[in-house]
Amino acid sequence: MIWKYQIYLKFKLLNIMDVSICITTYKHEKYIKECLESIFSQEFNGEYEIIICNDNSPDNTEAIIHEIITTHPKGSKVKYYKNTPNLGYVKNTLYSFSKASGKYISILDGDDYWINPLKLQKQYDFLETNPDFSGVGTDSKVIYEELSKPSHNFSNHLDQELTKDNLTDLNICQTSTFFFRKNILKPDFPKDIISADRCLYLLAGCYGKIKVLPEQMSTYRQFGASISKNVTYDMMKKDFEIVPFIKKYNSDYKSSKLKSYFYYTLMTYSNVITKFNFYKAATGYFFNNVLSKFSLNPIKLYLAIKWSKHTINQKYQIKVENNSFI
């Protein structure tokens, strides 16, 4: 126990935080106070800092943050930065990481908030006692800000331990629940991409497993005008830069599986797309998905081909129903 206390003192003398909570914000005047209050209400026995990177919001987001810093009893925990001009979501996220001094980083988007006061403590304790894990997420509550749709849970992987073999699955955990070891970050993390969260999860898989705790510990606000709802084909195809980046740090990732994953997202999430580009993405998905699951067993090969064709047809029909083709 003496050596643990000595290490603890060393960290304090070096001013090394246990956790850096990184918040990116843009036009969040309606939500940023609730976001910060959910952090201040955490029951955490370690030291944390709050890194806020405001991407040049044109509203009152900055004024609200300054008021909280100067009036809230825990306002001194906030380190505030403003980008002029704005950087964009991915670059702003990476900028917030660069300002973090914590052993761990916890992400929270400025329009979300935590709903479990033990979130930080549970995730911190988990990584402290499980060195073979590089990150830990939780379930989250999806709420619709502009629609009368009922809320629901986000993750499809509750209470699971995920490895690089299944980190290309969908709905692993929402960004505002993710807590990870800062030392997994790399200086060449791709900046000209859309899906920083997907890249981060895959990078974490290079260095360990990811645990998804079953409790809902954060909200995830959905907006009709959010970036994720308005991406184009040309925007989404930038995510292919992630493939060589991930392969650089763990060559055990199968290239065909990574490419299949990003062709799937290109085919699925591009809400402005021509039929020609849809079929290009579908062809890439089909080829790489079958290749990643290739087997000399004829039944398994048949099922891989059948499922790939089914997925393409399903996504095509969704595009037709949503009038996504141009």
Rank of each mutant, 00 (worst) to 15 (best):
F44M: 01
F44C: 03
N45V: 05
G46Q: 02
E47R: 15
E49A: 04
I50P: 00
I51P: 00
I51T: 06
N54P: 01
N56M: 02
P58H: 05
N60M: 11
I65V: 15
T70G: 04
T70K: 15
H72Q: 05
P73Y: 06
K79D: 03
N83D: 11
N83Y: 03
Y89K: 12
V90N: 07
K91I: 08
K91V: 07
T93E: 05
T93I: 12
Y95I: 06
S96A: 13
S96N: 09
F97Q: 07
A100G: 09
S101F: 10
G102R: 10
G102K: 12
I105N: 12
S106H: 14
I107H: 04
D111W: 01
P117D: 14
L118P: 00
L118A: 14
L118V: 04
K122S: 08
Y124Q: 05
D125P: 01
F126T: 04
L127T: 03
E128M: 14
T129W: 11
D132K: 15
S134I: 04
G135H: 08
V136R: 01
G137R: 09
S140T: 14
K141P: 03
I143L: 12
K149V: 06
P150T: 12
F154H: 13
S155P: 00
L158V: 08
Q160P: 00
L162Y: 02
T163S: 15
